[in-house]
Computed example of a mutant assay.
Amino acid sequence: WKGAQLALEDKVDRDANQVDGKQVVAVVEFDSPAPVVMHIGTSFISPEQALQNINDEVGSKSFDTVRSEGETTWNQQLNRITVTGGTPDQLKTFYSCLYRAHLFPRMFHEKDAQGKIVHYSAYDGKVHDGVSYTDNGFWDTYRTIWPLFSIIQPDRYGEMVDGFLQGYREGGWMAQWPSPGYRVSMPGTHGDAVIADAVVKGIKGFDINEAYAAMVKHADNPSPQRGAGRNGVANYLKLGYIPGSVSETLDFAYDDFCVSQVAAALGKTEDAARYSKRALNYRNIYDPSVGFMRAKEENGTWRANFNQYEWGGPYVEGGPWQSTWAVQQDPAGMIDLFGGRQKFAAKLDQLMSEPPRYDIGGYGSEIHEITEMAVIKGFGQ
Rank of each mutant, 00 (worst) to 15 (best):
K2I: 06
A4R: 13
L6W: 02
A7M: 10
D10E: 13
V12S: 06
N17R: 10
Q18H: 13
V19H: 02
D20M: 11
D31L: 08
P35R: 12
V36Q: 15
M38T: 13
H39S: 13
T42P: 00
E57F: 03
V58A: 11
G59F: 13
F63H: 13
F63C: 09
T65F: 02
T65M: 08
S68I: 04
E69W: 01
T72F: 13
Q77P: 01
T82G: 05
G86D: 01
T87E: 08
P88E: 05
P88W: 05
K92L: 12
F94V: 00
Y99E: 09
R106D: 15
F108D: 09
K116I: 12
I117E: 11
Y120F: 15
Y123W: 09
H128V: 10
F138K: 03
F138I: 12
R143K: 04
L148I: 08
F149V: 07
Q153A: 14
Q153K: 14
R156K: 15
Y157K: 05
D162G: 03
F164L: 11
G167V: 07
R169W: 02
E170Q: 10
E170I: 03
G171N: 13
R183T: 14
M186W: 05
M186L: 07
T189D: 08
D197S: 07
G205K: 05
A211D: 10
A211V: 03
Y212H: 09
P222R: 08
S223Q: 08
R226A: 11
R226Y: 03
R230N: 15
N231T: 14
N235F: 10
L237P: 13
G240D: 12
Y241R: 14
L250Q: 14
D251C: 14
D251F: 14
D251I: 07
Y254A: 00
F257S: 13
S260G: 09
Q261M: 07
A265N: 03
G267V: 04
D271C: 02
R278Y: 06
I285L: 15
Y286D: 12
D287G: 08
R294Y: 02
K296N: 06
R303H: 00
G319R: 03
P320K: 12
P320N: 13
T324D: 06
Q328D: 14
D330A: 10
I335S: 10
I335A: 08
K347C: 02
D349W: 00
Q350A: 10
P355I: 02
P355A: 09
P356L: 01
D359G: 10
G361W: 02
G362I: 00
G362Y: 01
I370Y: 00
T371C: 03
E372P: 00
V375E: 02
F379Q: 00
G380F: 00
